[in-house]
Design a protein around this nucleic acid. Structure first.
Lengths: 155, 155
DNA sequence: TATTGTTATACTCTATAACTATA
DNA sequence: TATAGTTATAGAGTATAACAATA
């Protein structure tokens, strides 16, 4: 029984620590988590309209305007006219943006190593499996609750 | 090698999901994570000055003023004059505040059960142990980095 | 008529600096 | 002189609503 809450307590502790670590790491590059999230999606999607970014980030279009404004003035992205739809804007990573996201991927791997580097392969695999399970449960829960809210608000 | 990044990836996924889940759960009570964090510390510390809250939350005194303003007008806390120091204010949980934090503790246990409830006791224990290790490493890393920054900024 | 992005407005969280009242 | 809390100001992230240009 107690081990169950211990799992959640540790996950919450890791949650807080990751937040601090990410915020501090990004601060060095003049980035925030929200802006980095946008860069991350942009890297995954390639040049993208702001509407599509809003959908990918699950955030209002107005919010994307603000995030892109900030990222454009700090040189991580550029806006360009959409080739066929003159209402739309295409947002792309600049060289600086690509470079920065590349570094971030490297740091990601390094952090992995620092966290579990000297555990035995078998232990790491078991841990990964346990986390798969927990993440899956949590995802199911969150989605069910969000669906429930939608239903409650709609019905 | 790949299992290492899998561990971090799952932790990051859980990080995002916990954020969504917490935000949604709190929204129902008219609370935010920042305000709930203050309530949580208040429950731990008992009636507390705003200075002490600022220190506990690692946040500016000005910020505490705003958080307490919000919590006071929604009825979760009250301000009272400090008995001996007329500069200071004592913040306390109201009955509503106590009740709400109690419910939150219950939900915490329920969530634990939902996440690992039907895993074997041995597996849960192993998972808890693995997370202990990872949380410890992460804590060490974050503290070292923050100390390094202080040194760099100071020296 | 619907969609894309922006301006207008507002709220929360966060910070620093200046000020008031007290120690 | 130092401390507790506030007002003043500012910036980031978030939202909705109204509006312009375009589809």
């Amino acid at each position: 029984m107690e081990d169950a809450t211990r799992v959640l307590d540790r996950l919450l502790e890791i949650h807080v620590l990751l937040q601090r670590d990410l915020a501090r790491a990004l601060e060095g590059n003049g980035l925030t988590t929200a802006r980095t999230h946008l860069l991350w999606e942009l890297r995954r999607l390639g040049p993208t309209t702001q509407q599509a970014l809003a959908a990918a980030l699950e955030v209002s279009p107005r919010n994307v305007t603000g995030l892109v404004d900030g990222l454009e003035s700090s040189g991580f992205v550029v806006r360009a006219p959409h080739p066929t739809d003159r209402r739309a804007t295409l947002v792309s990573l600049t060289e600086l943006g690509e470079l920065t996201m590349g570094e971030m991927a490297t740091q990601h791997v390094e952090l992995s190593q620092q966290l579990v580097g000297d555990m035995s392969q078998a232990d790491v695999r078991k841990l990964a499996k346990g986390l798969d399970t927990v993440a899956g449960r949590l995802r199911t829960l969150v989605e069910a609750e969000e669906a429930g809210i939608t239903t409650a608000a709609t019905g």
